[in-house]
Amino acid sequence: MSEQHHDHSHGDHSHSHGDHSHGEHSHSHGGDAHGHADDAAAHFRSYIAIFIALCVFTAISFVFNELVRGGIISPMTSATVIMIVAIIKAGCVAYIFMHLKADWGKVYCIMIPVVIMCVMMIIVFLPDGVLGWR
């Protein structure tokens, strides 16, 4: 696996624009063969670590939900924790599994607007949809 795979096999137009290099050191392929194995092992470890973190976070949100049932913490606290945990989990998946760690510099200009747009849309709906009924 010494050559880089940046052909456009997925797109149905194989227009190669020269160097679509993935050769960042943080990305799993590319680079010279030497140090490649270390790199690959590091990636494997990071994937497993994220997987374990995701499982733990899922357990945390489940436990917090049960704690409310037991009357130990208030529903508001638990809801906050659970939503923060969800955001962290989504961030983990996006950052490591979706390779945003390596690709953020290339896609931030579409991701930042869409995140702003999502949050804004929900917030603007609130006065009519929620506060109007109070």
Binding site: D7, H10, H22, D103, V107, C118
Partner: peptide, 22 residues
């Protein structure tokens, strides 16, 4: 050459994900 150092397929998928996020 112009363009992002991203293959077309991957760029299009990110854009598709933008529509999916919305």
């Amino acid at each position: 050459p112009m363009g992002l150092p991203l293959p077309n397929g991957k760029l299009a998928m990110w854009l598709f994900l933008v529509t999916e996020i919305m």
